[in-house]
Design a protein around this nucleic acid. Structure first.
Length: 201
DNA sequence: CTACCGATTGACT
DNA sequence: GTCAATCGGTAGA
């Protein structure tokens, strides 16, 4: 863990699909009152500002999705089926796009994750967007949080710039609208990604 | 205020 | 593989 440098704001201020791919392999770091947890991002999904019926901002701005309309580099935390999920907002302010973090590989604070999740199974600790949030103690309090500075929630650049893995693009999981778009990206071969689901080239 | 729905998960066949 | 519990957000009366 050489440099603990946060990914800078310009990293997020780019096309969402590109940011999604580039987030793979980076470290998500969460510091809470009861300790710190960290994990390597292995699965993400992109939600587009235009023509994407699955995006929460598709039908305009509401109280819930307000963070998506804010500047890049902020968190967008929402509730679904009584659970929390976390996104990272991309593209310029007023452009409601974001990357959903679906799974990470546990790197630090594993015991804390186990306690929060109520399971010892390392593979299941952060596999799935809501499981990840439970393991990292992420909830609505972090909605709108700036992730470009080392703080309660941020993303650390990977030790080396060169990716040592292949990226697999598939359709998104669980969405009922615009289900045909291949906007889910995973680290090929990682056992820490959530259920495979159908694949697409 | 009530009614409906979902970017999920965990339990079960 | 299938299925339903779960509750915050949204729309509508």
């Amino acid at each position: 863990m050489p440099d603990a440098v946060p990914l800078p704001q310009p990293f997020y201020d780019r096309p969402v699909e590109q940011v999604a791919r580039d987030l793979l392999g980076k470290r998500l770091v969460r510091t809470a009152a009861d300790g710190t947890t960290a994990g390597r991002i292995v699965e993400v999904e992109a939600y587009l500002s235009q023509g994407d019926a699955a995006c929460h901002a598709y039908r305009g701005r509401t109280r819930r999705n307000a963070s998506m309309f804010g500047p890049a580099g902020c968190a967008y935390v929402y509730a679904i089926h009584a659970r929390w999920c976390v996104n990272l907002v991309t593209e310029p302010e007023g452009t409601p796009s974001a990357v959903l973090i679906r799974a990470v590989e546990p790197l630090a604070g594993v015991e804390l994750m186990q306690a929060r999740r109520g399971t010892d199974k390392r593979l299941d600790l952060c596999r799935g967007p809501a499981r990840l949030c439970a393991a990292f103690a992420i909830d609505r309090a972090l909605d709108g949080h700036d992730v470009t500075r080392a703080g309660d929630l941020w993303v650390q650049d990977a030790p080396n710039g060169v990716a040592d893995f292949d990226v697999l693009a598939t359709t998104r999981t669980g969405v009922t609208n615009a289900a045909d778009l291949a906007l889910r990206f995973v680290v090929a071969g990682s056992p820490y990604v959530s259920g495979p689901r159908k694949r697409r080239g």
